[in-house]
């Protein structure tokens, strides 16, 4: 285990850059949310491309705008969204590892494809875990590079434990997702699915839904036909990742990593982890569709992802 040293300095913060490990687990009963990467797939690939183990902290860059300067020679990788990143002004490929010499400048500009890019450093970013995790949850003031749940700000310096790694590793073509097209989101129907009217169920799985601009790491609101549920609200209960709740206005909200731990709206079911990843890369206005899947299908896809990065 090498000693943490200065790795990357923030020269421009951009709207939202957060350090995320796999998430904060075992404390949800205390009202503490899960956190972790909104796009698990992109996050896992960033780590994998530089040879890091599952769970190593990665920087989640939303929308772009972030600019970093290397404090030493590093090997890094960018996966997930294409936020028109450049290294000393030269365009950088996503889904690929590359070396960064001390003094070189990595800049994210604006989204070209997708919304969230993941930046991993060979050896990993280092931060003090809070409640067992460095996952950054701004609302709860927990985790992140400073332990206080702050997004990156100009002047911050990210610590790393650098490790030699080869540059030029690439994700296979089928794993380099195109986020621009229509997204089909796999959903496991839940216990209240029978409380929705037949028409509403037909619409839920057949109508196009539009990603609303009320979308963040807590949840993404979808707009479309008004869904009707016989059950206006329930006694609050635990909410799993990807739960699609339908408040009385009939417009579903898919709940993501920073969701509240309990809630009382009826649910259509739960998006699979990979569907959450896909949704987290959608920009407001983008069209998505919901597709019902079986638990077996969902589990096979999830196990495929996890075993690929064992």
């Amino acid at each position: 285990m090498t000693h943490p040293v200065d790795g990357l300095s923030v020269t421009r913060a951009g709207p939202l850059a957060l350090l995320q490990d796999a998430g904060r687990f075992g404390v949800r009963r205390l009202g503490v949310t899960q956190g972790g990467p909104a796009d698990l797939h992109g996050w896992a690939w960033a780590n994998h491309l530089v040879g890091n183990a599952w769970g190593t902290p990665v920087l989640e860059v939303t929308l772009g705008g972030l600019e970093l300067v290397a404090e030493r020679d590093l090997v890094v990788a960018v996966a997930g969204a294409d936020l028109s990143a450049t290294l000393d002004g030269e365009a950088l490929a996503v889904w690929r590892s590359f070396s960064m010499k001390a003094g070189q400048r990595l800049a994210f500009a604006t989204p070209v494809n997708g919304l969230r890019a993941y930046l991993a450093v060979a050896g990993g970013f280092v931060a003090r875990p809070v409640l067992g995790s460095v996952a950054c949850v701004v609302r709860e003031g927990l985790g992140g590079h400073d332990g206080q749940g702050h997004r990156l700000a100009e002047g911050d310096c990210l610590k790393v434990t650098p490790r030699r790694a080869s540059s030029g590793s690439e994700a296979p073509r089928e794993e380099r997702y195109d986020y621009g097209g229509a997204a089909e989101l796999a959903l496991l129907p839940g216990a209240q699915v029978g409380e929705f009217s037949g028409d509403s169920l037909f619409q839920a799985f057949n109508a196009p839904w539009q990603v609303d601009d009320r979308a963040d790491r807590m949840g993404v609101r979808l707009t479309g036909p008004r869904l009707q549920c016989r059950m206006p609200s329930m006694i609050s209960e635990g909410i799993g990742l990807g739960a699609v709740q339908v408040p009385p206005d009939g417009q579903p909200i898919a709940l993501l990593n920073d969701r509240q731990t309990i809630g009382g709206y009826p649910r259509l079911g739960a998006l699979t982890p990979l569907a959450c990843s896909r949704l987290a890369q959608c920009l407001p206005g983008q069209a998505v569709r919901l597709r019902a899947v079986s638990a077996e299908q969902a589990l096979a896809a999830y196990r495929h992802l996890r075993t690929a990065f064992a």
């Binding site: 687990f25 075992g26 404390v27 949800r28 009963r29 899960q34 006694i235 609050s236 209960e237 635990g238 909410i239 799993g240 731990t261 309990i262």
Partner: peptide, 11 residues
């Protein structure tokens, strides 16, 4: 991984 007790249920 996690347990979320609440009023009438346990997740």
């Amino acid at each position: 991984v996690d347990l979320v007790p609440s009023y009438t249920t346990l997740l």
